[in-house]
Amino acid sequence: MRCLPGSSALLALLALLAVGAAPAQYDYRLAPQALGNGAYVFVGALEHFTRANGGNIVNTGYIDTPAGAIVIDSGPSRLYGEQQRALIERRSGRPVARVYITHAHPDHFFGDQAYAGVPVYALPATREAIAANGDALADNLYRLVGDAMRGTQAVAPGLPAGAGRVEVGGRALQLIALAGHTDADLAVFDERSATLYAGDLVFHRRTPSTPNADLARWLAALDRLEMIPYKTLVPGHGPVLQGPEAIRETRDYLHWLDAMLREAAARGVDLPELAELPVPARFGDFAVLRAELSRSAAHLYPALETQALRRLAPDVRE
């Protein structure tokens, strides 16, 4: 913009007014829930992305060590990451030691920008997916969440996470490399507190989401998680719990979803008609059930319905 002579004072005044009128930045009001033995979780809302929740629909967490905290997932926005980091460092009195990103979905990694200078780890396929799709995911989240996303850009985790046992500040973690919810899903097991951070391989009282899911691999991943001697399980979405209920619940739902879609495809049901099919009462109180079912149909049904068709013989083509 070209300024007219004499207008600079006016512009300066306008700029001052703009600063004065700028809305307060979104406050996520993060409050860690203690899980015992230095393990913590930040529990998000059981909702879809909205302007009101600022995208905080996710569980993130941290594990305190004498060398600084280990953070698991950085949340849905730059602001979330900044507020998460400030809160953790204030409480632990030390800089964060490292961050693990469980998978390449936008509610789990968009806080990475707040961790400049901190090693951020993810499975190789997660790093690739964020590098490839991060900008498109950001565009969509700006559209859904709005102002809380201000200043957020996708930053792919800088370091590859390897499966196996690692020690940080004298604390042993087991990194479990799985897949099924996405192409690469990292679960983190903290041995001392016996806490399993399951990422989005496990949902609890919240309908599983499937935009990049492979249901067979996901079910196999659940079998593997079930063998871990955890006491406390932190699902990617939903309340923290003790015991196997959330893994069983996720498996039950995925089995039902798979069978329901296959059966419908074999009957010639059109995709939008799936919304009218009955859902078992045991899933009735899952959060965002109908919305996620509709999305899952869009993700998983096209492959099944085209498989149900038959190629018309070439001799009948003109």
Binding site: L271, P272, E273, A275, S294, R295, A298, P302
Partner: peptide, 16 residues
């Protein structure tokens, strides 16, 4: 008109 409220894939929105 059966259709999801949001387009999961803008290249192929299913409608019945």
């Amino acid at each position: 008109v059966l259709m999801a409220g949001a387009a999961e894939d803008p290249l192929a929105v299913p409608v019945h």
